[in-house]
């Protein structure tokens, strides 16, 4: 494995012939936490979606290499099985599909056919992780995200992350819709997971506000504007953006 975990080079992508990403360059090493901040429409969520492989977006130029694999040659499910995880801003509701069915299928998809997770092991893991996320016991038989509040959906995304144990964790505005306690639960669980897997895990957080960063301390903060990264700094940059906004960077 090279020292660079995720390497994005001159990435350009569009939706409905409108170019959103206009040449993104980004390197993330194992054990690093990066944050993307920016104004509405800057392309932050598009970047995460393109890395995940959302078919809505067309990559017109550039490359994304993750863990020595060319992600652009891989389907969405192949990327996920390779360790890419996106906690989505608007998770889908899966009517009729229970959390247990869904997660068991997802876990087994990453395993060989002769090494499928045993039912008892699955429930043990499910119980442990749902307790960590402070999710109620009736959750196992509920349908995925159906009838959940916005906050419950976000917590469910992190619960899925804990169950699936990915290597590249992307959090797309995970803090929106969460109350203060829930942000703390989410932030602490992401940090705990990251600290336990720091040798082969990286995090990419997309956010408008630095609240979540109080719990998940970043190594780098990037400002995305008009489809390009225009500034990179550290946690101090995120705090400055909260106090002063984006105008001072954009006007430069």
């Amino acid at each position: 494995m090279s020292n660079v975990f995720l390497n994005i080079n001159n990435l350009k992508a569009s939706v409905n012939d409108k170019e959103i990403l206009k040449g993104i360059n980004l390197e993330i090493k194992p054990g690093e936490i990066h944050v993307i901040m920016g104004t509405n429409g800057a392309g932050k969520s598009t970047l995460a979606s393109v890395i995940m492989g959302n078919p809505k977006y067309e990559v017109t130029e550039g490359s994304i290499v993750f863990n020595d694999q060319n992600l652009l040659d891989m389907k969405v499910d192949e990327r996920a099985r390779a360790g890419v995880f996106l906690a989505m801003q608007y998770p889908s509701e899966l009517s009729g599909v229970s959390n247990v069915q869904f997660l068991k299928s997802a876990i087994n998809s990453k395993r060989e056919k002769d090494n499928q997770i045993k039912l008892l092991d699955f429930y043990r893991l499910f119980k442990e992780k749902s307790a960590e996320m402070k999710i109620s016991e009736d959750y196992s038989n509920r349908y995925v995200n159906e009838g959940y509040s916005g906050g419950e959906k976000k917590k469910n995304e992190i619960f899925q992350m804990l169950m699936l144990e990915p290597k590249l964790i992307m959090l797309d505005e995970i803090d929106s819709g969460l109350d203060i306690d829930a942000i703390k639960t989410v932030g602490e669980n992401v940090t705990k997971y990251f600290n336990n897997h720091t040798n082969d895990t990286s995090v990419l957080i997309i956010t408008h506000y630095p609240r979540i960063l109080e719990y998940v301390k970043p190594d780098y903060v990037h400002v995305l504007h008009n489809g390009k990264i225009i500034k990179t700094g550290n946690y101090e940059l995120a705090l400055k953006l909260e106090n002063e906004g984006y105008d001072w960077i954009i006007e430069k």
Partner: peptide, 28 residues
């Protein structure tokens, strides 16, 4: 497409997505 993408993003391949949604539709 949204549901297909969401489920695939958790590592589940297309045929299994269809199967889970089909069983879910009828067993709900």
């Amino acid at each position: 497409e949204e549901i297909m993408y969401y489920m695939q993003s958790r590592g589940i391949e297309k045929n299994l997505v269809n199967k889970l949604i089909a069983i879910g539709n009828l067993s709900k």
